[in-house]
Design a protein around this nucleic acid. Structure first.
Length: 842
DNA sequence: TTATCTAGCGTTTTT
DNA sequence: CGCTAGATAA
């Protein structure tokens, strides 16, 4: 089991003049402050870089790599640099490139924990019973698999949902616990069955030659632990190790790093304990807190000079985070003296909060308070929970404010992408049962539970794959009716496409057995075959009927209207767009096999269009980003901090709360110049304990904002369109009636809408005018030209609501009866006429 | 087998 | 409210 493949040998053999490199000038050091410089120049031994928000940690990290290379300490392939996200890895590559010129060809070991480990695992797969072409299951596959096992084990699905059990196993994997290491205490409520189920799950994965995300790390750790020779080679190979976002590492990642760094201890971890927000996903802040114990003599460097935010924003963030205990402690400072205070404002309800923020964004876009106009791209709304996003989306859609949601479902997690990938997978390896099962009845082929069961049984009885079983079922007519015909077509199709990937590997013999052409299989292994995989991929999706399944047969009237292809639902055009993007991504890989090995780890969300938009995201996905203007809505107890975190008893409660507080810290420190925190007294909530309207106290974190750095805003009194205004003020929420309030709370409330002159004016006004808010009150530009492009009866398409018919025009809005989404008022420029929407790929 | 209805549920989510 | 999974109806 030699560990290093030919490409390593080749890399190692590349002649390199270390002395020449050592003499390279180091101009890149000039732009560093003393702390950064120390972090960069302390090359040997363990280094912990405590880098606060906005202190230039990526700069320090990338410069350190440049320095390692320039001084000849290591060659590019001898540096192991790990991040958590592909984005961070890409960013680092880019920045190293610009520091070094084009001197660095590539750093094969700069990547995410998962992609680096997957690479290692492919080399040593056999040591844990896998083949090197194993597939990586995503969360969805994981749960489906778990479900099958649960049913097989006769466990009550209701009591132990697959999702939950998969989660438990995931947690164990994060803690580097293999099935044999699960103690009764770890198993918790699920007792000994947990370990058994876990073991069964792992066995099944091996059978399928598959791993889940957790396995990628865990298997490699296992290999290192059980094969010292392999570990040693890598300890020697990776001369320097760098780790980004160290506070987010879990136990498995920690063990992995510790094993690799054990001999030379040239490990540099960068992190910020105050930004540890993934504890619920297995991250251990403890890892960063005890770095100095793990690596005695560690050099600790603190980056505390912040280059991002104004003093008030920094002070507010520091004030909040100061309430946390057990911090490593950092005090951010800045040389800046400019800037305004953090703004705080209370609202009546979530809808009004969204409305106010929308107006504020439009105002800032125009330029307000003597500030220069701010581009929409430079503003962001950061929420605690995804549900909060809807209020903003609804509002922005109706006022025609362009926005983009950051995060959301990952590209490869989308149904259509997974379907397509399953097709590719089954074509490359027809015996891939999971992929075949997915593809079997997508699109609908009239194969239901019964047919699937028949195929499964046949497979089991003959010990063949599902695909071969399906072939057999067709030949022996074990399946009836439409399904039989369709299945035969599918089997035939897979054979044909498969043939195109590597030539005629399989041929059905006269006796129904399958003939395998060894020479061609060998050729494939040697990677010598060539075929146009992009073209083939398109063909597969086309000929399988998959693409077509997103269109419905058009009716005569649709034909009349000129709708050439009619999507089956609102989502269809987007899905086709995604498939198109997938095909485009394919060309980045040499062949389908190469693509498949990387999909689940390396496929990012689609390209960013360059339209100016406000960003909406969760606080979690905001980490690492920065914006000149940041809105932080929903600061209410129960929402932020979340109820869950507060419900945890005792010491755990503190822990949960501290993580929430770090989330607040992350949020505030994203802001460069403007930071606006808001809360609403009433919010439409749908959670376990309470449904419907809830009224909450403003967040306890608001109390922790240092008063001198906060300006409590008085609403401008431009509010219209609030509902049921009369009586609301009197019945004011418990939050207001509630007991002792801090100064800031009190101030915020005093200035709050329900007590303000603006609120009273609103009551009168809304009584007089009803609900509608006059457009001119918001200084809104009415785009009449856009409206006049449509007339009553027009068939239109809207990106979110789908198809509909224009029922009328009110001011700058179109009233549209949507087929699925009901009647809505929508700004004209968010709508296109139906014909234009059918610009569909393939 | 499929389409349609209803009950149940509802933090955060880098890979 | 809006989504999903499961049960029911066609």
């Amino acid at each position: 089991m030699s560990s290093f493949s030919e490409d390593d040998a080749f890399e190692a053999a590349v002649p390199l003049s270390q002395r020449a490199m050592a003499q390279r000038p180091t101009p890149y050091l000039d732009g560093l402050n003393p702390a950064q410089r120390e972090a960069v120049e302390t090359l040997d031994g363990p280094v912990l870089m405590l880098a606060g928000a906005g202190t230039g940690k990526t700069k320090a990290l990338t410069t350190r790599i440049a320095h390692l290379l320039a001084t000849g300490r290591a060659r590019p392939h001898e540096i192991l640099a790990v991040t958590f996200t592909n984005k961070a890895a890409r960013e680092m590559k880019l920045r190293i490139g610009s520091l070094m010129g084009d001197a660095v060809e590539g750093m094969p070991w700069l990547g995410t924990f998962h992609s680096v480990c997957a690479k290692l695992l492919r080399r040593h797969a056999e040591l844990v019973g896998l083949k090197s072409n194993f597939t990586i299951l995503d969360t969805d596959d994981q749960i489906r698999l778990m479900k099958q096992l649960i049913v097989a084990a006769g466990i009550d699905e209701k009591r132990w949902p697959p999702r939950m059990l998969a989660g438990i196993i995931d947690n164990w994997k994060n803690k580097a616990l293999t099935p044999d290491k699960i103690s009764a205490a770890d198993a918790g409520a699920f007792d000994s069955k947990g370990a058994a189920l876990y073991a069964a799950y792992q066995r099944r994965l091996l059978e399928l030659n598959a791993v889940d995300f957790g396995d990628i790390l865990l298997h490699v750790v296992t290999i290192f632990q059980t094969h010292p020779d392999v570990l040693q080679q890598y300890q020697r190979w990776f001369k320097y190790i760098l780790v980004d976002e160290y506070q987010d590492t879990n136990v498995a990642q920690y063990l992995w790093l510790r094993l690799l760094a054990a001999s030379h201890k040239n490990i540099c971890c960068v992190g910020d304990d105050d930004q540890s927000i993934y504890g619920w996903r297995g991250a251990e802040v403890g890892n960063i807190l005890r770095f100095e114990t793990d690596f005695p003599g560690a050099h600790v460097v603190r980056l505390e000079e912040n280059y991002r935010s104004t003093p008030h924003i920094l002070a507010a963030a520091s004030g909040v985070i100061a309430a946390n205990k057990g911090r490593l402690g950092k005090t951010l400072f800045t040389s800046r003296t400019d800037g305004e205070k953090v703004r705080l404002i209370g609202h009546w309800d979530g809808e009004e909060e969204a409305r106010w923020i929308g107006e504020e964004i439009e105002a800032m876009q125009r330029g307000t308070r003597g500030m220069e106009p701010i581009n929409l791209d430079k503003m962001a709304i950061m929420v605690r929970a995804t549900q909060q996003m809807r209020a903003f989306e609804d509002r922005f859609l109706s006022i025609g404010l362009p926005y983009r949601v950051i995060g959301g479902p990952r590209f490869y997690e989308r149904k259509e992408i997974r379907d397509a990938v399953a097709y590719f997978r089954v074509v490359v390896s027809p015996d891939h049962d999971l992929a075949f099962e997915r593809v079997l009845n997508t699109p609908k082929r009239g194969l239901g539970d019964k047919a699937v069961q028949t195929i499964r049984n046949t497979a089991g009885a003959n010990e063949i794959s599902l695909f071969e079983s399906a072939r057999l079922c067709c030949q022996n007519k074990l399946i009836k009716g439409k399904g039989l015909k369709e299945l035969a077509i599918l089997v035939e199709g897979i054979d044909r496409w498969h043939g195109e990937t590597i030539g005629p590997v399989r041929q059905i013999q006269a006796d129904n057995s399958v003939f395998e052409d060894e020479s061609i299989v060998a050729a494939f292994d040697a990677d010598e075959t060539e075929y146009d995989h992009v073209e083939l991929a398109e063909k597969i999706l086309d000929e399988s009927g998959y693409t077509a399944s997103y269109f419905k047969q058009q009716t005569p009237e649709e034909f009349e209207r000129g709708d050439t292809l009619v999507p089956i639902d609102i989502e269809a055009p987007g899905r086709l767009e995604n498939l198109k993007e997938l095909i485009a991504q394919l060309s980045r890989f040499e062949n389908l096999q190469g693509f498949l090995e990387n999909v689940s780890l390396n496929l990012d969300n689609g390209q960013e269009e360059n339209v100016e938009k406000v960003s909406i995201m969760t606080l979690h996905s905001a980490k690492g980003l920065e914006f000149p203007a940041v809105f932080l809505p929903g600061w209410e107890d129960g929402l932020f901090p979340s109820q869950r975190s507060m419900d945890q008893p005792g010491i755990l409660g503190e822990k949960g709360l501290e993580e929430e507080r770090r989330l607040a810290y992350v949020g505030i420190t994203r802001a460069e110049a403007v930071c606006i925190i808001s809360f609403a007294s009433n919010r439409m909530m749908f959670n376990k304990d309470s449904r419907g309207w809830t009224s909450q106290m403003p967040s306890r974190f608001i109390d922790e904002l240092p008063e001198p750095h906060v300006e409590v805003l008085t609403p401008p009194g431009l509010y219209g369109g609030s509902y049921g205004a009369a009586g609301m003020a009197a019945s004011a929420s418990p939050a207001i009636a509630g007991g002792a309030m801090s100064n800031l709370h009190q101030k915020a409330h005093d200035a709050n809408v329900y007590n303000s002159p603006g609120w009273r004016r609103l009551q009168n006004r809304s009584a007089q005018r009803g609900m509608a808010m006059p457009a001119e009150a918001r200084n809104m530009t009415i785009d009449l030209a856009a409206v006049s492009a449509f007339t009553e009866g027009d068939r239109v398409f809207h990106q979110k609501f789908g198809y509909g018919e224009v029922m009328g025009i009110e001011g700058d809005k179109l009233v549209i009866a949507f087929d699925k989404a009901g009647s809505k008022h929508v700004v004209a420029r968010f709508v296109v006429s139906a014909g234009q929407a059918d610009d569909v790929p393939f």
